[in-house]
């Protein structure tokens, strides 16, 4: 009984405000004459036409997602590898730190025009832009994580003769994984921004390209559907990331809970 009530309360808490906001949006715009703010009912009705039936889902959304995936995975490979190398050596870290501080401080979107010089406006440019933005949070968080590996664990691993790849995997990567995952989460949200910007700046297809095209042709209702789709995409990717985090760091959350000794 009390479980049922708790579940009801939780779902009530989760759904009330979103429902109220949507209802408010629906009612306030119901007979809106404003050019910029078409009725929500019109926007939702247009989704089917604009994205599903026209084939835009496979022609624009899919390429965008593939570029994001490619860029993100490359950034992960690069960031984690370099991060482990830099984090493991005090000298290398001191050597690289000022340069990394500077490179990371460059706002990634300004690299769009720079990379356009090298790679034109094709897929390569967009993937490179995404890599060049995602890699910094991943790299720097990995460095921090590797640096903070527990001394006792390091000594223990040495005593047990753990070395080479298995030391790297079971000791270094494992210890640094909470920070690495934080880096992945930050990198992903920058990646989405860069995916959209690179397409808005110069492209012939993609989600960002479609949205800016609707805006330029003053197709405001279609533009709104694009904005909603992009928002939904951002939310879904963040959910996926959290799911991954739960799975990958299950041991860590358990450990932390145990250390707190049931104080929570």
């Amino acid at each position: 009984m009390s479980i049922l009530r708790r579940v009801t309360r939780a779902s009530l808490a989760a759904l009330t405000l979103p429902a109220a906001l949507l209802a408010l949006w629906w009612i306030l715009t119901a007979d809106s004459e404003s050019y910029y703010l078409p009725p929500l009912s019109d926007i939702l009705a247009a989704v089917d036409d604009v994205w599903l039936r026209s084939g835009r889902l496979s022609a624009d959304v899919l390429p965008s997602l593939l570029r994001l995936l490619g860029g993100f995975l490359l950034a992960v490979a690069l960031g984690v590898t370099l991060g482990i190398a830099i984090g493991s050596s005090r000298r290398l870290r001191a050597f690289c730190e000022p340069v990394l501080e500077f490179l990371r401080a460059i706002p990634p979107p300004v690299l769009v025009p720079v990379l356009m010089l090298f790679a034109g406006i094709g897929d390569t440019m967009k993937v490179l832009v995404i890599v060049s933005g995602c890699v910094w949070p991943i790299l720097l968080n990995t460095v921090e994580g590797v640096r903070a590996v527990d001394e006792v664990l390091v000594e223990t691993a040495r005593c047990y003769g753990l070395r080479g790849p298995s030391r790297l995997w079971h000791l270094v990567v494992r210890s640094a994984s909470p920070q690495i995952v934080t880096g992945l989460r930050q990198g992903l949200s920058i990646g989405i921004i860069l995916m959209v910007i690179s397409e808005m700046f110069a492209a012939s297809n993609g989600l960002g390209f479609s949205i800016i095209q609707f805006q330029r042709t003053f197709a405001v209702t279609e533009m709104w559907t694009g904005i909603l789709l992009l928002g939904l995409l951002g939310f879904l990717l963040a959910m996926l990331m959290r799911l991954f985090e739960r799975r990958a760091l299950n041991w860590y959350f358990g450990l932390r809970q145990a250390q707190r000794g049931g104080s929570r």
Partner: peptide, 14 residues
């Protein structure tokens, strides 16, 4: 929170 703010670019322009 996770909605990318760049989604608002076209709206801001208009």
């Amino acid at each position: 929170r996770p909605i990318p703010s760049v989604a608002l670019i076209p709206l801001a322009v208009l």
